[in-house]
């Protein structure tokens, strides 16, 4: 099984995506989907991605809900900042935070979350010093932002390690 599908989860996701895009469960599309997921699994094997093991799926679901709530909240916050920016210019600035995440995939996920949330933008991660530089649009209280990143970090650490 491992020789045919080196990354079973990835292959399964690709197969599901293919079936959803085609919107059919005909044998033909399932066959093409299987071949596609197998070939792309081999291609991924050549790329040597960092393997990580998901622990505690339940915690991951809770974390996803938390992130969705944060995205909604920050969407509204940033929209109001932009609408007010003619009168009150936003106080933006850079922040640095120490991260204690070893897992490459956890770091990538953190980058995705922070960029998908309007109001914070991932700029640079220093591998040697393990610090993250990011930009915040509304820098009225630094502590809140640092606390948010620390909260994400703790949750990701729990999920990935």
């Amino acid at each position: 099984m491992r020789t045919w599908f080196p990354y079973p989860l990835l292959s399964l996701a690709l197969l599901i995506m293919w079936l959803l895009l085609n919107q059919s469960l005909a044998p033909g599309s399932i066959l093409i989907g299987l071949v596609l997921s197998m070939v792309l699994g081999w291609v991924t094997l050549k790329l040597h991605p960092a393997r990580s093991h998901l622990q505690r799926i339940g915690r991951a679901v809770g974390f996803a809900l938390e992130v969705i709530a944060d995205i909604i909240r920050s969407n509204i916050a940033v929209a109001s900042i932009i609408l007010r920016s003619g009168r009150i210019p936003p106080i933006a600035g850079f922040l640095t935070v120490d991260l204690d995440l070893e897992d490459e995939n956890a770091l990538a996920l953190l980058a995705c979350i922070m960029t998908a949330t309007p109001g914070t933008a991932w700029l640079e991660y220093d591998r040697r010093r393990k610090t993250l530089l990011f930009h915040v649009l509304d820098l009225q209280n630094e502590e809140v932002w640092l606390g948010t990143v620390k909260r994400y970090e703790a949750a990701l650490k729990e999920i990935f390690q």
Binding site: I71, I72, N75, V78, A79, I82, L83, S85, G86, P89, P90, A92, F94, T115, A116, T117, P118, G119, T120, A121, L123, H135, L137
Partner: peptide, 22 residues
């Protein structure tokens, strides 16, 4: 509108995420 109104590049970086997420 944020792309138009915000003053420097780092601030403008935040504006398109509203369009892509919300």
């Amino acid at each position: 509108l944020g792309l138009l109104r915000l003053s420097n590049f780092y601030e403008r970086l935040h504006a398109p995420t509203i369009a892509t997420s919300g």
